[in-house]
Amino acid sequence: MKVVILGATSGMGRAIARRLAERGDSLFLLGHEPEELERSAADLSARAPDFRGNVGHAHCDLREPEDFKMALTVADRALDGFDTVVVTAAVFATQEQLEADIDRTEELLRINFTNTVVFCEHARNVLLERGGGTLCVFSSVAGDRGRKPVALYGAAKAGLSTYLEALDHRYRSAGLNTICVKPGFVKTGMTAGLKPPPFAGEPDQVAALVVRAIDRGTPEVYAPSIWRLIMLVIMHLPRFVMRKVGF
């Protein structure tokens, strides 16, 4: 595969990129910190089967939608035509932090919903032009139901999940597999400092599920898998219960 990854320098994106690099896929990294990109590219290159992966990288910041097209063009040239785009990048803040700072709320909603969708639209265009491919994007279980601790973060993710599902319905017959990944709580640098709930996952466990989903074209992935069951229960709880409980 020839894969472009936005968000491969840390967390679950790092774990997915490693799995792909180790089995010999070609990678190109997009991100907003040049030194981080360089270090991750070196890591992934050393993991390639012959120690000499040639992982390239270019600047792309989810805050700057005007650059998305250019970044994808650079990646496309470097890979000589990519067939897979993975988006793990996003920002996170707790409900308390967001309620205290409306500017931060506006920025989070814009990055995690509007700009992510715009990036996906550019990627979709490129992939459809060449007859299809895979678009794998990280949403969250937080988007499955309106819940007290993730009212704002969850709202952006709900919008993103809806978009990704519709994309899958609309373009699968044209060859585009859209994969919506819904991680539950995963122990990464992003969630460090939060108290892990039961069933908290490890990034590599998520990466294994995501790579399998990319290979098979599975449109929706809960990771760790137990979260499919948990969310099924949560989605069927009546409102008066949701109002009482803290999650």
Partner: peptide, 11 residues
């Protein structure tokens, strides 16, 4: 332990 990248390896 999360800072775990290989920065270079010369075979």
């Amino acid at each position: 332990r999360l800072a775990d990248r290989i920065l270079g390896f010369d075979p």
